[in-house]
Design a protein around this nucleic acid. Structure first.
Length: 326
DNA sequence: AATGTTCGCAACCGCAAGTAG
DNA sequence: ACTACTTGCGGTTGCGAACAT
């Protein structure tokens, strides 16, 4: 489109596809299935490069493509996965049945990004633009955690509001809303994670370990505690290594689940519950021990706990009803 | 009605990773 | 181990329709 292309040199066509070309490509793939894209065009009688054919097929001709408006559920999934994965459009699209990465990307750029901006949330960082949360004790790391929580909570509340509105409008007397709120929908949804989602999840789990000195994102409060003291290991006890083992076990479990037939999110929920995260036991009690300034431990535990709640929110509120086993 | 602007969409480009020879 | 080729991905562009002035 206005630019020089490799196709031009070969005298190949470019630009919009004609119905005739679509028909030729469709007919060829129906007859021979998918194979080498580079050798397909001449065999199919098309004067296109293989790349162009692949794109046309993947973004338009594939029979399992859903077109039209995105549902609220899809909106929510995109926003939450984008917060988790960033611009990994193919990974996000993998969790939206029948949607292409191109369409998800376009929808994000043309619609969702603006919507978030209007809500005062930075679509890149997913953090509130003008934070009402002052940096805790002037510590930017703590402020970062609080901002992160704020954006998650904001998205969650918005979704919750819409859900409840839908329930009232479409399903009077339905228990859907309470099911969503209580997380019981989790049990009814079978879904496996994409490798990217799994990776993101693992990084969340391991972040407080790897980044214990410098601090991190959701759980980076350890660094905010007292970087200097942690850097010489002064407050790390045996309990800590036990806790690390626990976390690493969970990561291994996650990998097992992701390879099996289990319900990924259900298993995660079980892990979270079995680890007593609600009681801050994993980090507050095991990792943050006698710091000599006790109050910080409580604060950190609260933030960490909220961090986990963010993830649980993703699991509970972000589960699209229409997703099936990947 | 004419013109300018915005938006939605399809398609292209370049890069990186994977694979075959 | 190296190279050439293929494929997948994310960013970007151009076109046309819809909307605003």
């Amino acid at each position: 489109m206005g630019r020089t292309s490799c196709c031009d040199a070969d005298g190949l066509r470019r630009g919009a596809w004609t119905p005739d070309e679509d028909q030729k490509l469709l007919a060829y793939i129906q007859r021979h299935g998918l194979g080498s894209w580079s050798s397909l065009p001449p065999k199919a009688g098309l004067q296109r490069c293989g790349k162009s054919c692949r794109l046309r097929w993947n973004n338009y001709l594939r029979p399992d493509i859903k077109r039209g408006e995105f549902s609220l559920q899809e909106d929510r999934t995109i926003i939450q996965l984008h917060a988790l994965l960033g611009n990994k459009w193919s990974a996000i699209a993998a969790h939206l049945p029948k949607r292409t990465d191109n369409e998800v990307k376009r929808y994000w750029n043309s619609c969702l990004k603006k919507r978030l901006a209007m809500m005062g949330i930075d679509p890149v960082t997913h953090k509130p633009k003008s934070t009402i949360l002052r940096p805790a004790n002037g510590d930017p790391k703590k402020a970062s955690n609080l901002n992160h929580m704020a954006q998650w909570e904001s998205a969650r509340l918005e979704a919750e509001a819409r859900e409840s509105q839908l329930c009232q409008q479409e399903l009077p007397g339905s228990t859907l809303g309470s099911a969503v709120a209580s997380g019981t929908l989790l049990k009814e949804t079978t879904i496996a994670p994409s490798p990217d989602l799994l990776k993101a999840w693992q990084s969340l789990l391991l972040k407080p370990i790897e980044g214990r000195v410098g601090g991190g994102d959701v759980c980076g409060v350890l660094g905010a505690q007292s970087g200097a003291n942690y850097s010489n290991g002064g407050f790390i006890t045996d309990n800590r290594s036990m806790a690390l083992d626990q976390v690493e076990d969970h990561v291994q479990t996650m990998e097992t689940i992701s390879n099996g037939d289990g319900n990924f999110f259900e298993e995660i929920a079980d892990i979270l519950l079995s680890t007593n995260l609600d009681n801050h036991s994993l980090y507050t009690d095991s990792l943050i021990t006698s710091t000599g300034n006790g109050g910080n431990g409580e604060l950190a535990g609260t933030i960490i706990n909220n961090g986990w709640n963010d993830i649980v929110s993703l699991l509970n509120y972000g589960l699209p009803n229409n997703l099936s086993v990947v």
